[in-house]
Each structure stands twice: as structure tokens, then as C-alpha cells.
Amino acid sequence: MKKTLLVSILFLSVSISAVAQKTINNYKYVIIPLKFDFLSEKDQYRLNTLTRHLFKQKGFIALFDKEEFPEELIDDRCKALFADVEKEKSGLFSTRVNITLKDCLGKDVYKTETGSSREKDFKKAYNEALKSAFSSIEFLDYKYKPAEAKVEKGDDEMKELAVNVDKVKTETQTEDIKVSTKNGETALKDETLYAQEKEYGYQVVDATPKVVMQLMKTTATNVYIVKDQNAIVYKEDGFWYYSENNGELKEPKTLDIKF
């Protein structure tokens, strides 16, 4: 009963604090590949260099994918957009390209209108078409602003909610939650985790609620890749396990996850 009440309160707190949908204004970094797929060489026609230059002019911190990243970007690549230039099917006398910006999960954040050029020289044609496509981004009036959580309830309601969460957490901490380990023995588990569904899979939080890990979908049933870890989370015989392999396969750990 107490655990059920705690879960209800936690999900209520999540529902009243919604993260705003991200736009390009929520990113200050753009990562550009040194080679675009439709070309045969790195920085062919200086197209990659031009792409970086255009984003820098717009106010982004633009980086090539092979150069050294700032520390905050090394810690969290999701702070950056990933730019790609794609060639579209062109007419006999035209070159057509567009620019796509994706997030760290490969989801499209923005795609430009198609830019085109009727220049015969390839370098001139691609550079002109790229600048034409980039004009779509020019109109967006980019200004970096970190994404923040929006709180829709008043301060008094939030304070009351926090008191209720603390009260139930204190009561729940006095209970031992028993789970079965893989070898059949019984062990004590002092923390229950909660899985929140996302487009990429699940975000796993503790009772704080603090994000513990992110589980990425796979094609296998009840098997997830742990983001930024050499590990998977999987279900077997009715129980969830965390299995890590950093060059040496470790004994799976039992997890108490509520989906």
C-alpha cells in the first residue's frame, strides 16, 4: 500500500513538471562530419568547412566530429545537434541539397528547405546550393537558451507535494523489499526503480526522483542497452537483471524495476 502510494505521488510530480519540447535554440553545439555520405572525399569541395563556417556565423559552437570536444560535451553528447548535408535528386542542370539537424538519438530536430544551384562547376554548385539551403536556418533567429522544466502548479501545491513525498519515502524506507537472485537465494534490495517510457525506450529513476540510467530499445523482447555503458538490462524468469561487460563479463545484478 505504501509503495503504491509512493509511486502515485512520484508520477504526479512528474506529470506537473513537463520538459519543454526542444528546438534548435536549446543547443549551443553543432557537430559536423568531416565527410558527407554523398561525396567520396573528406571535406570535398570544402563543403564541410563551409557548413561549419555558416553555423559559426549563426552563433553556434560548430565542431568537426573528429576534433577534441569541450568537457561538457564529452560528458553529454545530447547537448549537441548533429548536422548532415544530403544531396537530393537533381535535374539535368541543377544541384540540390538540404541540411538536416538531428539530436543525439538520431531524431530529426530541423530540416531545411532544399537549396539549389545551376552552376556547372561542382564546387561552385555545391557551395551555392548549401548557402541557399542554409537560408532556412537564417530565418529562425537562433539564440541559445538551455531547455528548462516548466512548472504548472503554484508554489504552495509544490511544497505540499514535496512534504507528502518525503513522508511516504520515510515510511517506505523502514520496509525491506525481498527479491530472488538468479541462483535462487533470497537477497535484500533496498531501492526500487521506476521506468518511465520514452521514445528511445525507458528512463529509469529512483525515488528522488533521479535518473539512474537510460534504456535503449533493441529488437529482442525485454532486452535493453544501457546508454553510455557497456551493459544491458534484460528480463529472465520474471526478474530484471543488469549485466555489464567491460572486457570481463560480470555476474548479473538483480534489479527491482517497476515498468
Rank of each mutant, 00 (worst) to 15 (best):
K2V: 08
L5E: 15
V7D: 15
V7K: 15
F11W: 09
L12E: 11
S17F: 05
S17M: 08
A18S: 12
A18V: 14
V19C: 05
I24K: 12
V30Y: 05
I31N: 00
I31M: 04
K35W: 02
F36K: 10
F36W: 13
L39G: 05
K42L: 09
K42A: 13
L47M: 07
L47P: 05
T49Q: 08
T51G: 02
T51C: 11
G59F: 02
I61V: 15
A62Y: 07
K66M: 08
E72D: 15
E72Q: 10
R77I: 12
A80P: 07
L81V: 10
L81W: 03
A83V: 06
K87I: 03
S90I: 01
L92Y: 15
F93W: 14
I99R: 02
L101Q: 00
K102D: 03
K102P: 00
K102L: 00
C104W: 07
C104R: 06
C104L: 06
L105I: 00
K107T: 08
Y110K: 11
K111S: 09
T112S: 15
S117M: 04
K123I: 05
K124H: 12
Y126Q: 09
A133N: 10
F134K: 12
E138N: 15
D141S: 09
P146F: 14
A149Q: 13
D155P: 04
E157K: 11
E157V: 10
N164C: 04
K167N: 11
K167E: 09
V168T: 09
K169E: 04
K169S: 06
K169Y: 03
K169I: 07
T172K: 12
D176H: 13
V179E: 04
K182V: 04
G184W: 07
G184K: 01
G184N: 02
E185N: 02
A187M: 07
L188I: 12
D190H: 13
D190M: 05
D190T: 08
A195M: 13
E197N: 00
G201N: 05
D206C: 01
T208Y: 08
T208P: 00
T208W: 07
P209T: 07
V211H: 04
V212D: 01
L215Q: 02
K217F: 00
K217V: 04
T219Q: 15
V223G: 13
Y224C: 11
I225Y: 02
V226R: 00
D228V: 03
N230D: 15
I232E: 06
K235P: 02
K235L: 09
F239Y: 09
F239C: 01
W240C: 04
W240N: 05
W240D: 03
E248Q: 10
K250S: 12
L255V: 01
D256Q: 14
D256P: 02
F259S: 06
